[in-house]
Design a protein around this nucleic acid. Structure first.
Lengths: 224, 224
DNA sequence: TAACATTATGAAAGCAGTTTCATGTACGCT
DNA sequence: AGCGTACATGAAACTGCTTTCATAATGTTA
């Protein structure tokens, strides 16, 4: 029922957890290092399960980083380091959870369900970045007061970028999170919609907010 | 730019205000008594301008009534009674405004713009009535956990009813507020969509929540 | 119960948004 | 500059939601 990102370097453990959670109908994606995990965590998951000790980047740092980027996906940290030092104590304050190893899988499932059961995350319904505004409730957007007449997909796209200002958004992220495709079709839907969206957002006489990053994706710039 | 309901019994004053506000690009609908005004105020307006002294029902009572029904359209009360008694003081607390007569029309326009400029009213994004739930952000609805697969219009319809539980909703209200038609076409769009919506919400084995009120419209019953 | 008005609904038509396809343009590397 | 790849975009095809239309069912009144 939920999209879960598991950041865990030990293949065996990852496999074990994946199988168990899939038994409960969840969809799991695995990342095997802190660096990969960080990248994946920028996408739209319902929960993250993060190992504390990871190659490349510490699990807590992954969470810290995405939080600093405004991503609020709840996270459950799993670790052999049982002692509750300061950093771990900070976790709960941030609404996340901590699970010392070894743990019974059923315990993980329970915490997970608890996180998912939490009152539907009160997301912002109104986003703004510089001259760009978007009202998710009435589903309308504007740039400097000029109303943008966006179609559904275009609006979803813009929302996705507005939630990640200044960050590169890849086609793959969009296909997965906006279109909901599990595997990537060879299609240029994203390109076509980006083209349409950009035409509406960045008019010839305006300073462009969207940029293409060759070989990587697109970025919505924060205004300086 | 805004849909305004003017509740004012004096035709001359009403005309004057209407002309001025239309000059600023607003769309005005007028009601000439408290009773008519009350009925109209249940629809979706951006602001109400209400005369204090009205035939039938006092202006403040109109506001009080719709507030008790959960309608939060901001209101500006206009009155020759300049003294700020308790009831008027209560107005500001409720987010509404008061304008003693006589006033310059430009003053009314200013207050109006101020009200409209207020941070987009933080409406509920999640509505519930008995077994019915609707999440406006993800735009999905459910009855007793059973997910209703509603199309856009159906969802808009359901939202409209959920915001007016137990109240009769006329076809005319729906055409105006959900479809945005200014004048009523002879069409049975509403009937068709109600039919589809009811089929999804009220299944044969469930106790029906929607009712038809012959000659008037439909009602979504509050569960007892 | 007959006659009329209102409501319900299946199916077809209409239309708008989405996706694909084909082609043109820009970029980066040697 | 030349080449290959990535990106941009007009237009057609497609899809699915919306609306209309026609007809049936239901309720109301005399």
């Amino acid at each position: 029922m939920a999209n879960i990102l598991l950041i865990e370097d030990d293949g065996e453990t990852a496999e074990e957890i994946t199988l168990e959670l899939e038994r409960f109908g969840h969809a799991i994606v695995t990342a095997d290092s802190g660096t990969n995990g960080l990248e994946a965590a920028r996408r739209d998951f319902d929960v993250l399960i993060v190992d504390r000790l990871l190659p490349g980047l510490d699990g807590l740092d992954v969470i810290k980083t995405i939080r600093s980027e405004g991503i609020r996906t709840p996270a459950i940290v799993v670790s052999a380091l049982g002692r509750l030092d300061d950093r771990v104590r900070g976790l709960r304050a941030g609404g996340d959870d901590y699970l010392p190893k070894p743990f019974a899988l059923i315990e993980l499932v329970a915490r997970l369900e608890a996180v998912l059961r939490r009152p539907a995350e009160t997301r912002e319904t109104f986003l703004r970045l510089g001259p760009l505004e978007i009202d998710l409730l009435s589903r309308c957007a504007a740039r400097s007061g000029r109303r943008l007449d966006l179609h559904g997909r275009e609006l979803d796209l813009l929302e996705y970028f507005l939630r990640r200002p200044g960050h590169i958004v890849t086609r793959s992220m969009l296909l997965q999170d906006v279109w909901g495709y599990r595997f990537e079709p060879r299609s240029n839907v994203v390109d076509v919609h980006m083209s349409k969206l950009r035409r509406k957002v960045d008019r010839p006489d305006e300073t462009p907010l969207f940029r293409n990053v060759r070989g990587q994706g697109y970025r919505l710039d924060e205004p300086r």
